[in-house]
Nucleic acid binder design. Structure first.
Lengths: 168, 168
DNA sequence: ATATTATTTCAGAAAGTTTTGAAAATATAA
DNA sequence: TTATATTTTCAAAACTTTCTGAAATAATAT
């Protein structure tokens, strides 16, 4: 397989992986493109490579910057902005984990906590079942939350060497 | 807050959590409804509670059964089928993990492996960058894969007691 | 066997999401 | 300042996914 073909394949796959996990396909494709580019790219180059519009590029690059997966470069004597991706794949993973925890897990934890305050007679089967399920979910989610916190705070070597060797 | 209201809230939230993670909203809502029902429900009851069509109910219940999150009951002297959800939340988590690994991670591992066979001069910056990125992704994904395998094979008590206490 | 009730299927409709592209805003150059 | 290059915004269009509902199929009862 030749490089151009392999790059295309990689970009398409990264894109569909993203969309299966609720991340905009184009956002994931731009990320893939920047990941495998040795040098930062301009908006124009991204548009050209992925055959997408200026607006689409602008919106998704901004979102990638919010996720801290991509950063802007201002080159001396250059009007255009250049963009590059974080290349350390462990950091990429941590940024995504942190962002999704903040956007999704944290709100869920709040809702579960509120719902556990439901009024009702404990002898009522419906109330009992509801409380049991919420209690169990709360226990698991809290543990997941603590695990994520630990991973987010830890560095790669700790995680890979200590945790994964243990799991083996 | 009263029970009815709390149930609705829970179903809505479970549904939107699902859709953020690429799982059909209705499928997640049916799952939520069955999770908090002390007894199995009929198609009719699910349609009524969630205000959805027969077809939609049928398709999503089948999908939940594929994921092993829901099972059918045939009651003696009853023509209709009843459905209930797996209540052990750790098992729910394992079934989802197993299913998504099989459907998404496993194909990605194959693609990454294939793409690493790309031809090209190592001195070419593009080729070099591409290979480095793929090598790094492959390393991380393989480790994630092994971690998931271990979790899937382990039972609750092992995981919660040994691993999570360690992470604390 | 036929009738009755329940379930599944799937084409078209509805709803939701993403993308375009032109206009507005912003930034730098002359 | 005005001109030119670049980026951002957002309404409408295109695309994707999900849902409906009626017809087909299946299962049980009479």
């Amino acid at each position: 397989m030749q490089l151009g073909e392999a790059k295309q394949e990689f970009i398409q796959n990264w894109g569909s992986l993203g969309s299966q996990w609720g991340i905009n396909r184009t956002m994931a494709q731009i990320h893939a493109l920047l990941l495998i580019s040795p040098d930062p790219l301009t908006t124009e180059q991204i548009m050209e490579e992925l055959q997408i519009s200026r607006g689409n590029t602008s919106m998704n690059v901004r979102e990638l910057i919010n996720w801290q997966l991509v950063k802007k470069h201002h080159l001396a004597g250059e009007r255009r902005e250049y963009f590059s991706a974080e290349k350390d794949i462990w950091k990429v993973f941590l940024h995504i984990l942190r962002e999704r925890k903040k956007r999704e897990l944290d709100p869920v934890i709040r809702v579960i906590h509120d719902l556990q305050q439901v009024n009702g007679n404990e002898k009522d089967r419906d109330v009992k079942e509801f409380k049991v399920v919420l209690h169990d979910i709360n226990k698991l989610v809290s543990k997941g939350d603590r695990a994520m916190e630990t991973i987010i705070r830890s560095d790669e070597s700790w995680f890979l060497n200590t945790f994964l060797k243990l799991l083996r």
